[in-house]
Design a protein around this nucleic acid. Structure first.
Lengths: 329, 329
DNA sequence: TTATATAGAACAACCGGTTGCACATTTTGC
DNA sequence: GCAAAATGTGCAACCGGTTGTTCTATATAA
């Protein structure tokens, strides 16, 4: 073990330079030498040291992925899927992914990774407005991109077309005859919440109707009010509960069921993400599928182009699709 | 920007060596010089290059965390929590965590990270017997540790005391008057399944009873049989459904509810992990809490000791506790 | 006073790659 | 047949740290 360019060069009676060129294929080199070297390194199972290469290239071949340190958030299936997308695409570029836990209470890990130059670029998997994470990245000169519209002109991001998706969901529901809906949403500090809310309202407008503002409930992730909110919605005549994500939807379904309310007989139900979490639920849940994996991959691609000198531009993925299932039948 | 030891040395009229020693505190250096250097680097915000340091130290200061590439598995809250534990503890050692997706269909990312020496050690967050991941690691000479008993003498691991925990859970249930239970478990290719199953049986034995083998159902994660399995259990007189994890429990609760079966009135229910997934469920679910975060931290610590020359030893965490809630009342 | 420790700092090699430039050899053009 | 161009290879510097050894100046011992 422990081969280096030097040891190989010596063994083959060549110079370090030639061996390096034979491997990389760059520079002038004879076909014959190239073959000889490559056969030899295959034989001895040589792999160049990533660290040495990094030092010379002034690139770490690592990207940082910032995920919420708050486990309740981190546990959302969405982040996992996103991460998978990032990692998969990273492999294509021979990059690796460094996990960085951060939130508003601490960005020590992020500072460490960026300032000590352990990563070439950063993906922020969740964006809170004016967060420490974003502010730090703005000041540093590392390329970065954020997942989800940060509502900040100066911050580059990728996102699903959350507003468009919500609009379409509502239009679809209205087309199926549902007129009155309650909305169960997540935190107001997160931007998806606002985008989907806007889409929710727009859907009604597009169909010449108006959303019932009294049936919009946000910040419901950790809320103890779920039960009363649902009962209120039903007594107010809601025909359908629209949940902003599958975690919420799971809670809602559970809550309804526990109160002996049947879905879809007594009230209909739908969600966003279509994650694995609800894949086995009874009844099956109508959900709008976003390709989070693809979004993760996009982040990486944009950053890679950024490292190649291209400017980092926003990107909105508009390919979502609504999976109609039993819960809205 | 772009300070280096050289540029600092020049600026201060010292040598690179002296600056390095002033920063690290190693070697002979006068208190005066030490202060001068450290004040200066603070002023200019100097941070040493991790890559250069790695090359010199022959350490990457990265550990690899292998997580299942299969998103359905990856989405389990457990992995997130474990990851958080690993990352948190890593920070204490100035280590970073590289995410490596792998499963039996592909260990390319793992090979890359190990062979190109991007990591100093590996944590495998899920262990399948005789998996490619394990076989590869056995052959390589990188320190590694596996989460969950791999049932392989030669593979070092950390684990919760799954068998002990399951035993205790059953004993507790029996003490509360429940005699007949059904077990809903996950994949047989995973070892926790076997450990908990063993504990399940042992619990009955310890109380002078015997588990009803006909009410043990494994491989239920993606099973379409859930509904019939539950009905069968009830008709066979089961008083409680014991689920091997919260994902399963969520499915079970949902399925029961959908069939109009009340928990705990018609049947009781309990689970393992006590993850966030069920934290808002109605009724609240009795679950055995494992400290996955701590387990992740332990992995890291053991590996760090391994890098310091100590041999890598197994460790079983026995601190779990049963959260009794409404679902078993 | 001279020999011996010791402290503080610097030199230079090293980690393992990449790359600009120089050099020698062969090929091409006229 | 000779100059110019193209090809194959090697030297040496560089990336930015760490560390064994050496050197000088001062402190201690004999």
């Amino acid at each position: 073990m422990g081969h280096t360019l030097d040891s190989i060069a010596k063994e083959l009676g060549l110079s370090k330079t030639t061996v390096s060129r034979a491997i990389s294929g760059k520079g002038r080199i004879s076909e014959e030498t190239r073959k000889k070297v490559n056969e030899y390194i295959k034989e001895i199972n040589y792999r160049p040291s990533a660290v040495a290469r990094s030092l010379a290239a002034n690139r770490t071949y690592n990207v940082g992925l910032v995920v919420p340190a708050d486990s309740a958030l981190g546990e959302m299936p969405y982040f996992q899927t996103l991460m998978t997308g990032v990692c998969d695409r990273a492999m294509d570029f021979e990059y690796d992914v460094l996990i960085i836990l951060a939130d508003n209470d601490g960005i020590a890990a992020l500072r460490h990774a960026v300032l000590n130059r352990k990563i070439d670029a950063v993906i922020v998997s969740r964006c809170e407005r004016d967060s420490k994470v974003i502010n730090f990245l703005k000041e540093s000169d590392i390329p970065y991109i954020v997942v989800g519209n940060p509502m900040d002109e100066s911050v580059p991001y990728v996102d699903h077309d959350n507003e468009g998706a919500a609009t379409r969901m509502i239009e679809t529901l209205i087309d199926s005859g549902i007129k009155r809906m309650a909305l169960i949403g997540g935190g107001e500090n997160i931007n998806v919440t606002h985008s989907r809310l806007a889409g929710f309202r727009q859907g009604f407008i597009n169909k010449g109707l108006k959303a019932d503002e009294s049936l919009i409930f946000l910040n419901m992730h950790k809320s103890a009010r779920m039960d009363s909110v649902l009962k209120e919605s039903i007594s107010e005549g809601a025909e359908c509960i629209v949940c902003m994500d599958d975690m919420l939807c799971n809670s809602v379904l559970n809550c309804l069921h526990n109160d002996g309310i049947s879905v879809p007989e007594d009230i209909k139900l739908c969600s966003f993400y279509d994650s694995n979490l609800l894949s086995t639920s009874k009844p099956s849940i109508t959900s709008l599928y976003f390709d989070a994996k693809k979004l993760g991959g996009q982040c990486l691609e944009i950053l890679m182009r950024g490292l190649d000198g291209e400017s980092i531009t926003n990107e909105i993925l508009t390919d979502f699709n609504i999976q109609m299932r039993d819960s809205t039948k």
